[in-house]
Design a protein around this nucleic acid. Sequence first.
DNA 1: CCAAAAGTGTTATCGCTACACCCATGA
DNA 2: TCATGGGTGTAGCGATAACACTTTTGG
Lengths: 234, 234
Amino acid sequence: MYADHSHRYYENQARLLVAVDCVILGFNNGTLKLLLFRRKVEPFRNEWSLIGSFVRPDEGVGHAASRILEEYTGLKNVFLEELGCYGHPERDPGGRVISIAHYALIRAIEQDKDLAEKYQAHWFDFDQLPALILDHRKMVDNALEKLRRKARYHPIGFELLPEKFTIPQLKILYDAIYQKELDRRNFRKKILSMNILEKLDEKDKTSSRKGAFLYRFDKAKYEELSGKGFDFEL
Amino acid sequence: MYADHSHRYYENQARLLVAVDCVILGFNNGTLKLLLFRRKVEPFRNEWSLIGSFVRPDEGVGHAASRILEEYTGLKNVFLEELGCYGHPERDPGGRVISIAHYALIRAIEQDKDLAEKYQAHWFDFDQLPALILDHRKMVDNALEKLRRKARYHPIGFELLPEKFTIPQLKILYDAIYQKELDRRNFRKKILSMNILEKLDEKDKTSSRKGAFLYRFDKAKYEELSGKGFDFEL
DNA sequence: CCAAAAGTGTTATCGCTACACCCATGA
DNA sequence: TCATGGGTGTAGCGATAACACTTTTGG
C-alpha cells in the first residue's frame, strides 16, 4: 500500500496522519475575501472549514496543497505558499492529525456559482466570518498576518487583481490589506517609481467618467530588479 | 500503542513518518556558528547532520523540537521557531519522512566539550560547513535567510549573546548576521534610541583598555513597545 | 456646466549616512 | 605618551508625508 521504503530503516517509528489545509484569499469590491467550504466528512460534517486533504504517501506536501486547490477552484499556477505546521496532539478530536497550512491568493472570484453548488463553498468578508472548525480560525489569522507582512516587501498584491488593473484599484487593494487609507498621490508615485508596471493604452471606465489607465504587472522586470536585491517596500 | 483516536474517523488514510530537525545557531568570536552532529542511525550513519527526532504520537510538533534541543544541549527556554516543512516524497531514501525544520538561537557555546564527547557534536563556521545529509543543507540556508530577515524587525540578536553584553559586541553580531560592516556610531544611536536596552554600571574590559559598558536587554520594555506596533528596523 | 474620479507637482520634515573628533586606559 | 578601542556630535542628502491644483467626461 505504501509507495515508500520506510520499512527498510524506520519501521519501529510511529506514523501520523498528515494533512494540508488551504487559506484561499481573494479580493472583490474593495474588500478581502476568504473562501470557505462546508465540511463533507465527520467529525464536524457540514460546518464551515478551510479546504484540506490528507497528504498521499507518494506526493509532496506542497503538491497536495496545489492538488486540492486545483480540484476545488479549477485554478493552476496560483500563488500558493506554506504558512506553517499545526501539530498539537489534541487539535483534531477525530484523530492525531498534523496539518501543514498553506495560503493562496487568487484572482477573479466571480464564477463561484459552480463552486457554490458543487462544493457548498462561499466567499466571506473578513468581518463576517462564521465559526470555523478546529484551529482553522488561527490559520486564517496567521495567513492575514503573513499577507500583510509579505505585501510590504514583495509585490504580491498583483496576485489578487486581474491581469489588467488600474492604479486606483491597486491602491484600494493595499488599503484593504493594510487596513488603512494610503495617500492616493504618494501611492501612485511610489509604485510607478519601482518600474514594475507596464502602462497600457486602454482605459477602464467602470468607476469614473474620465477613466483610469490600465496597467499590467511586468514580472520580468520585477525579477530582474528583485535579483539585484532591490527593495519593494510600500 | 497510539495515544490518539484516529481509528474513529480517519482509519482509511495513509500515515506518514513525521520528524523535526533543528538548525542550532550560535555566535562566538565574531562569527556565526552551526551545531552539527554525527548521525547515529542508518542510513548515512556517521555523516554530519542536523539533530532531529521523530515526532511522538502524543506530543506536539513544537514540543518535539524543544525536547531534542534540551536533550542535546541541556538548554531550556531558548529561542526556537519553526522554519518550514520539508515534505518531498523522495527526500529521504530511508523512508517517506516529512520533516518540520526548526531553528534555534543559543547563547554561551563554550561548554561544548561535554557535547562533543557525548554526541559527537561540533560547532562549525559557516564558511567551513561539511557536506550534510539529505536536504539539511537547504534547511541551514533557509534558517540563515530567515534569521537575516527576522533580525531586521525583531530584536532577535540578543538571543545569541550572553545576558550582559556591550554595544560593540552587539554590533559585531549584526555585522555577522548581515554580512556587512555597519557604522559603529549609527548603530549605537539607533539601537539606543529604541529604548530596549538597560545600561549597567559594569564595564567589560576584555577587548579594550578603556572598557565598554555592559547592557542588558529589557524584555518588558520591548514587549510593551512591540505591542504598540513599534518598528525595530535595524 | 457640474460632479466625481484621475492624474501631476511642490514643499517641509524626518531619518539615515557619512563623517571628525574626544575620552579612557594599560603598557 | 601613545596606541587602541569606546563614546558623542553634526551636516547633507534622500525619501516620505502632507498638501492644492488641473484634467476629463457623462449626464
